[in-house]
Amino acid sequence: MFDIEIPAPDGARSLARIGQVLGDAGVGLEGGGMWSATAHYLVEDADAAVSALTAAGIGPVAARPVLIAELDADVPGALGRLVRRLIASDVRLHGQYSDHGNRKVLIVDDIETARAAVRW
């Protein structure tokens, strides 16, 4: 899975266009959101997403592989414990959001080290 980062300077108008372009290209969104005029979405096919958005004049688009971590969302402090494991392993966290299965999507600088760090 991949995170795609897309400028969304016009808020809802940008998201409507992004959603239409990706939908027309058959790219499903598995999680994500928009904040500070930047959209982040979890996709399976980053190449198709980047290609469709670029062809539509939307960008620049960045695509990064992500780590998806299971987290017991009903346990207070679970996210803090997860992130402390990344810190202890010197993994830099660039972003975090949830997918549609309530798993944590982690955008990190070193996926393999992060994967080892978050194993319960």
Rank of each mutant, 00 (worst) to 15 (best):
G32W: 03
I4M: 04
E112Y: 10
K104Q: 14
D110H: 14
E44R: 15
D24R: 06
L86V: 00
A39E: 04
G31I: 07
S36P: 00
L82N: 13
W120V: 13
A8K: 04
G33K: 10
P7L: 08
D90N: 15
R13M: 07
V66H: 01
P60F: 06
M34T: 15
G28H: 13
G95F: 09
D72Q: 10
R85M: 01
I107K: 03
L79S: 10
P7R: 13
I107N: 13
V91Y: 00
V108I: 06
M1I: 01
V21R: 05
G28R: 10
E112W: 07
L67A: 08
L106M: 14
A62R: 12
I68S: 09
Q20N: 08
W35P: 00
G11Q: 14
I87T: 14
Y41I: 00
R119P: 00
L29G: 15
V61M: 09
A52Y: 11
G19T: 05
Y97C: 01
A46W: 07
A49T: 11
A55G: 02
V43M: 03
D72A: 14
R85K: 14
I4R: 02
E30L: 14
G31D: 08
E70K: 10
A63M: 07
H100N: 08
R17C: 01
A116T: 12
G33I: 02
A46I: 05
Q20G: 04
H100G: 07
I18Y: 12
S14Y: 09
G19M: 09
